[in-house]
Amino acid sequence: MDRIILVAQQLAKEGKTPNTALIKARLPKNIPLPAIIQGLKMWQDNPNKQIEAPTEPALTGTTMHSVGGSIDEIINSKIAQAINPLKQEINELTLHIEALKEKIKSIPTTAVEE
């Protein structure tokens, strides 16, 4: 149940209203719908319940920890993966700009008389 409550809390933090479909989408496929409904009801009764880590054996190890830890860690990892190519492109463009500035500096300036 703790894992289901954690997912509901994360959805709420994202500004989404937790429901069975959203929760089911973030859980392993082997979680039965009645358990999701029960977990959602528990979250609705106490949305701010403090949960440190999932306690169900089926939800620890291969599901949560092997992916990289908490949902925040997974999100941060995905953001980093999306940003890294952009950072590389910015660095390349910066180098091109610097090269163009050097070329401009080397162009002789002549006064245009009118």
Rank of each mutant, 00 (worst) to 15 (best):
D2E: 12
D2T: 12
R3N: 07
I5G: 02
L6M: 15
V7S: 11
Q9L: 09
L11S: 04
K13T: 07
K13N: 10
E14A: 14
G15P: 08
T17S: 11
T17W: 06
T20M: 11
A21T: 14
L22T: 13
I23Y: 03
K24L: 09
K24D: 14
L27M: 15
L27D: 08
P28E: 10
P28V: 07
K29W: 12
N30E: 13
N30C: 04
P32N: 09
P32L: 13
L33Q: 15
L33Y: 11
P34G: 03
P34H: 06
A35H: 12
A35E: 15
I36P: 00
Q38C: 07
Q38R: 13
G39K: 00
L40K: 05
L40F: 05
K41C: 10
K41G: 15
M42N: 13
M42D: 15
Q44H: 08
Q44I: 11
Q44G: 06
D45A: 14
D45T: 03
D45L: 10
N46E: 05
N48M: 07
N48A: 10
N48Q: 09
N48I: 03
K49H: 11
K49G: 07
I51V: 15
E52K: 12
E52S: 13
P54E: 04
P54K: 05
P54C: 13
P54N: 10
P54V: 05
T55M: 11
T55H: 09
T55V: 09
E56V: 08
E56P: 03
E56H: 15
P57G: 04
P57S: 07
A58C: 06
L59R: 01
L59V: 04
L59F: 05
G61P: 04
G61F: 02
T62N: 15
T62I: 09
T62A: 14
M64W: 08
S66G: 06
S66V: 08
V67T: 12
V67H: 11
V67A: 14
G68W: 01
G69H: 01
S70L: 00
S70T: 00
I71A: 00
I71G: 00
D72P: 03
E73A: 13
E73H: 06
E73Q: 13
E73P: 01
I74H: 03
I75S: 11
N76H: 11
N76F: 09
S77D: 15
K78R: 14
K78E: 10
I79Q: 05
A80E: 10
A80F: 03
Q81M: 12
Q81D: 13
A82V: 13
A82M: 12
I83D: 09
L86A: 10
L86P: 06
K87M: 05
K87C: 00
K87N: 06
Q88P: 04
I90Q: 04
N91Q: 12
L93E: 08
L95V: 09
L95A: 14
H96S: 10
H96W: 07
I97S: 02
I97K: 02
E98T: 10
E98V: 07
E98N: 15
E98Y: 05
L100S: 02
K101C: 00
K101V: 00
E102C: 02
K103M: 02
K103D: 01
K103F: 01
I104E: 01
I104C: 02
I104P: 01
I104Q: 00
K105T: 00
I107L: 08
T109L: 05
T109E: 09
V112C: 03
V112Q: 12
E113D: 12
E113S: 12
E114F: 14
